[in-house]
Amino acid sequence: MSSVVAETHHAHEVHSHELPWPQQLRANRIGLWLFMFSEVFLFAALLVARFVLWNDPETGAITRPELSQELGLLTTVVLLLSSFFMNRAETAMEVGDRKRFLNGLLTTAILGTLFFIGVVFMEWNIFGLSGTLFGIELFGHLKPSDGVISGIFFAMTGMHAIHVLSGIIFILIVWNNGRKGHYSPEKHWGVEACAIYWHYVDVVWVFYYPALYLIGTAVHSM
C-alpha cells in the first residue's frame, strides 16, 4: 500500500486544497442521496414497463406470470433480514463496538449472497435444475425466450440483482477495511454510505416483490 501511495507524492507538487472534513461529509451525503434519487428513475421506469407489458391490453386488468410464491417469500425475508444486520453493524460502529460491527457486516453479506443465489440460481434457474424441498418447488420455470411474459421479469430482477451484487462487493470492501481498523466512531463515511446503499436496494425490492409476485391475477401465458 505505502509504496504505491509514495509514488504519487512528489516534492514539486502543489499542495492539495481539499475541503474541510465536515463540509466534505455534507457534500458526500448530499451527493449520495442525489444518486439514490437518480436511481429512483431507473427502477421506476422498469416498474412502469412492467404494468405496460403485463397488463391486459383490452381490459387493463393487472396480470402477472405464475411464480413460486414460497421462493419469492423466502428470498424477500432473507433480504429484509439483511437490512436489520446492516443497521446493527452501523450502530455498532457509531458506538465503537468493532466486533459487532464486523459480524453484522459479514452477516449482511452472507444474507445478501443467499438472496442473490435465490434469484439467479433458483428463480432464474440458469443451470436448468429441478427439485423439491418439503414439497416446495425450488427452481423457477421462466426462460428468457418465453416472450413478453419473461422479458420484464428478468429485466427487473436482473437490474435489482446487479445492485445487490455491487452492494455485497461494497460490504466486503468495507468489512475488509474495517478489519484493518480503518473506521472510527467519529469518521466512518464508508460505512454510512454502504449502509444507505444497502437499505436503498432493500427498499427497491419492497416495491418490486409485490409488483412481480403479488398483485393482479396469475396467468399461464400472454
Binding site: 434519487f37 428513475f41 431507473l42 421506469a45 407489458l53 428468457p144 416472450g147 419473461s150
Partner: peptide, 24 residues
C-alpha cells in the same frame, strides 16, 4: 441526473432484446 436514467433503461432493454432475446 434524473431523466437520463429512463433513456438508459430504454437503451439497455434494446441491447438486451437484440443480444439475448428478452422481449420488450
Amino acid at each position: 441526473f434524473t431523466a437520463t436514467q429512463t433513456v438508459g433503461v430504454a437503451l439497455m432493454m434494446s441491447i438486451a432484446e437484440r443480444a439475448i432475446g428478452l422481449n420488450f
